[in-house]
């Protein structure tokens, strides 16, 4: 099978990797780059566990080919700098098994950066693309709102 060498900018590092043209970004992140924070949950764009940040927007990495990500700035949960958000998830008990957490963090981070004044409807619009089966979503709501209320953005220091 044919592979091409591409260079991806992941978590501010240039990473060269050989990929099949049909390899998804999720597959390459996990299997080639060892970044297993993004999780497979459905490989169909339904659950959001694989969400990463591409050029400042939340993106389901199972719906994007790795070659489409060339020249873009990719951030995975391993490179997420939003300490207040991560801390809020711990303090509000916003996860249990933790499997959906990287996806929720990346999606919430994008929400906070793009809509720092987000209201309930905007929060729902963004976060309903991810599924959490353990919590009743209440704790996730509290965590995200606590960071929004703080006015902390993704670049903020804790």
């Amino acid at each position: 099978m044919n592979k091409s060498e591409i260079t991806l900018n992941v978590n501010s590092e240039e990473r060269s990797v050989y990929v099949r043209h049909s390899d998804t970004l999720l597959y390459v992140l996990r299997e080639e780059l060892g970044l297993t924070g993004a999780k497979p949950g459905c490989l169909n764009g339904d659950c959001g566990a694989c969400t990463v940040d591409v050029d400042g927007q939340a993106m389901k990495s199972c719906l994007m080919l790795a070659i489409e990500a060339v020249g873009k700035k990719i951030t995975t949960v391993e490179g997420l700098q939003n300490i207040p958000l991560k801390t809020a998830f711990i303090k509000k008990f916003a996860f249990q098994c933790g499997y959906c957490t990287p996806g929720f963090l990346m999606n919430s981070n994008s929400l906070i950066n793009n809509y720092p004044q987000a209201d309930d409807i905007q929060i729902k619009d963004c976060l309903e693309s991810n599924i959490c089966r353990c919590t009743g979503y209440k704790e996730i709501e509290e965590a995200v709102k606590s960071v929004l209320a703080d006015g902390s953005t993704g670049n903020g220091n804790y």
Binding site: G37, P40, V77, E78, L80, I90, K91, F93, G98
Partner: peptide, 17 residues
């Protein structure tokens, strides 16, 4: 706070897959 908290919010937590 959960003892597995930091591992889980940093993506370092490892699952079977």
């Amino acid at each position: 706070y959960r003892k597995d908290g930091l591992e889980k919010v940093t993506g370092r937590a490892k699952y079977t897959g």
